[in-house]
Every structure is written in C-alpha cells, then in structure tokens.
Write a protein that binds this DNA or RNA. Sequence first.
DNA 1: CGGTTTTGACCAGCGC
DNA 2: GCGCTGGTCAAAACCG
Length: 221
Amino acid sequence: MEGHQEPNYPPPLTPSSLISLPFLLPPQNPLFTPSSASTAPSSSSQLISPPLLEPQQHQVLPDIDWVSLLSGSPAAVFDGQEINNYKPLVENNNVGASAENINEADREGKGANSKRKGGGRMRKPASRPRFAFQTRSADDILDDGYRWRKYGQKAVKNNLYPRSYYRCTHHTCNVKKQVQRLSKDTSIVVTTYEGTHNHPCEKLMETLTPLLKQMQFLSRF
DNA sequence: CGGTTTTGACCAGCGC
DNA sequence: GCGCTGGTCAAAACCG
C-alpha cells in the first residue's frame, strides 16, 4: 500500500553536512570504523564496492548517508586509502533481484531473473530501497553508526558461510540488513541494506552533541 | 534483569 | 503438486 511512506528523518548524515564537517570523513567518521571495536585493534575494513553513485540512485536511497558521503566527497578515504573503482553490486531497488546478485552462485540453474520474495510470515512491502556493497574486512559487521539486532542466520546454497540477518533496534525503524562473507574470497563481506532509517544515527549524535554544544557556546562570543 | 544472539521451525515463492 | 530455498519468527541461551 502506497499510503504510507517512510518519513525521511532529517538525515543524520547528508553529503552537505559531512562535507561541511570534514573531521567526520573516514577514517575518523564513526560510520566507517570496523565493528566489534573491542576485538579489532587495528582497523581492518576496506570498502571496496560502494553502491551506485548516480543521481537517480540517490533518490531511491534517501538515507544511505555515508554512501552519499562517499559520492559527494572527493576526499573520501578509508583506512588511509582513496576509495575508487567503485563497482556496485546492486543497481536497483528491486527487492528480489538484489539478493540474487549477492550470491552469484545462486544464479546457476535457477535463471537470472529468479525472484524470491521474502518467505516467512510477513509479506514484504512492494519495494524498498535496497542495495549491497562489499567490504574487505576481518569483521563481518561494519559499524555504520546504527544499532542492529540479529534475528536470523541461514546457510545459503553454494556458500560456505551463513548469511546473517539484522534489524535496526530502533522501535519505529524497519531497516534491515544482511551480511554474508563470500566463500570465493573469504576476506570479502557483502552487506545488503534494505529500507530507510527514520531516526538519527545514535553514534553520530553521540559524537556531534558535545561538539555542537561547544560550537553554540563559542558562537556566543 | 534487560537486551542480544542462537537456532530450529515455519512459511511463501519459484522452478520443475 | 512437490521439493527446494531464502527470509522470518520465537523460545531458549547467553551476556554485561
């Protein structure tokens, strides 16, 4: 039903806001720090495949802010390396097709256009913003600043590693993501985001709040 | 004790 | 119609 539309929360990170806050660019940007920081003393994540960077895609990815950041920031670096040679995994917001792109082995013998709507007890909405990207990382979970709760794990065909399913823990937020390590190249983790956050990025707000307070204080003089 | 993870079961879509 | 597969649920276990 198209009656409801997910409110685009005042973006926690927008290209413009980040460009105006260069200190938040990677690797300082908390959105890009490897997750499970407790176990990862040295940052080992390397973004190797952000999603499409074309203007049209921005329209259907209203809240994938750090991606927008990358597209909008010529100075974007990660782990001290420039990010280039972007190779999007998913170029649409078609729910069914993108999952197929992740597990290319899955395409074998099934037909490239095989679309699998989400099984389970709840039908998915018609179409939600969805995209995937690859990171080269020892950590399965890339800390994007939001809090996620794992709700499932599934072995997928022709892949040594299981696919993990996460949901944003914010009460009103229905964003999900899937994380899967490639069996072909075990150093690569494929993350698929689905949906739009309707709340600010907690981690970013944590970072920004004291800074903003300080700026407010200083602006009084 | 509250939040998160694990894991087996369940369900729906698709191909044959 | 049946079997396979992926996505989700939910109870139990786990953890800080």
